[in-house]
Write a protein that binds this DNA or RNA. Structure first.
Lengths: 161, 161
DNA sequence: GGAATATATCTTGCGAGGAAGATGTTTCCG
DNA sequence: CGGAAACATCTTCCTCGCAAGATATATTCC
């Protein structure tokens, strides 16, 4: 029934501990992220990909960005991003704006409605993060969290492009 | 051009900082996880869902578990899990084993080949984690990471099933 | 000017997973 | 015993995103 107490079938038990440890860590953060995105989806009808795009656009000068650059930053392929953009255009969040000086590029530009939704969703997101992450952890642990992340990015290939 | 230096169009700049902070944290861990799963997929042909299932089975008594329980632990719907199981049966990683005492339940049972793949993949996974996460972070930071995760799980709904 | 290369976007087909419903099995209760 | 409710699994249809290829435009070199 219980062969974990006295048996040791293979010498890789440490492996299992490490993999389990990492699994729990990832699971915890993913669960938090899922709840957060679920809230955004419920309240604003924004799937994660669309919310991410809105955040990037509302931070951009003139609230616009070339499609390709946006796709790259959101870690989407151009083909995949086309359909995300289609849905966002249909929802009146962005519009496609041809570039005057380079007719290859199309800007994704935030509509007034899109800017409004982005700001409100960002506010809700920040409030929830404060309540469910920052406050419980405390600033010190939150800082450690970001530091650990920075270490991971530095060790592994941090490809900024 | 640069309206971030001297302008402050809305009073929610702190919101943006928090959301950005969390986005970077999530992105860092997800990138690590993606690389890890990419390695497992490349070397063993195991998609993340299948690898997760294998780990749970290899830890289980008699290397088997009822389908529904497995689906629940892997955060999949029963319908979605059926097809994952189909692929794993086709790859000779698991087989479906009817239960003697309750003819509703079907066990997912690890095949010999499945057990072998699971052990080798787990070893690779643990080695990579040691090299790219545990060693760079140090045991203290790694401990802090797990602690922060535990806090998050405690604050938000920790459903132990 | 005009061909070759690079860039930006869109279209088609595929795999993964979820939701709703169908089927067969067990358990509960009169 | 016999029917109703709960349960486990599977089937069908849907959405989402990626990969590969097609099309159109820009830039560069001759």
């Amino acid at each position: 029934m219980h062969n974990a107490d006295n048996e040791r079938p293979d010498p890789h038990t440490d492996d299992d501990e490490i993999v389990t440890w990492w699994g729990l860590v990832i699971e915890g953060y993913l669960a938090t992220q899922d709840r957060l995105m679920g809230e955004i989806a419920d309240k604003f009808g924004l799937p994660p990909a669309q919310f991410d795009i809105l955040l990037r656009l509302v931070r951009s000068p003139e609230h616009r960005m070339p499609m390709t650059r946006l796709a790259k930053e959101a870690a989407l392929t151009s083909g995949g991003f086309t359909k995300v953009a289609d849905r966002m255009v249909a929802a009146d969040l962005i519009r496609r704006q041809p570039c005057d000086t380079d007719r290859r590029v199309t800007y994704a530009t935030l509509t007034d409605h899109g800017r409004d939704v982005a700001n409100r969703a960002r506010r809700v997101c920040a409030d929830t993060l404060r309540r469910t992450v920052l406050t419980p952890l405390g600033t010190e642990a939150a800082f450690a969290l970001a530091n650990a992340m920075r270490t991971l990015r530095a060790v592994n290939g941090d490809r900024p492009a």
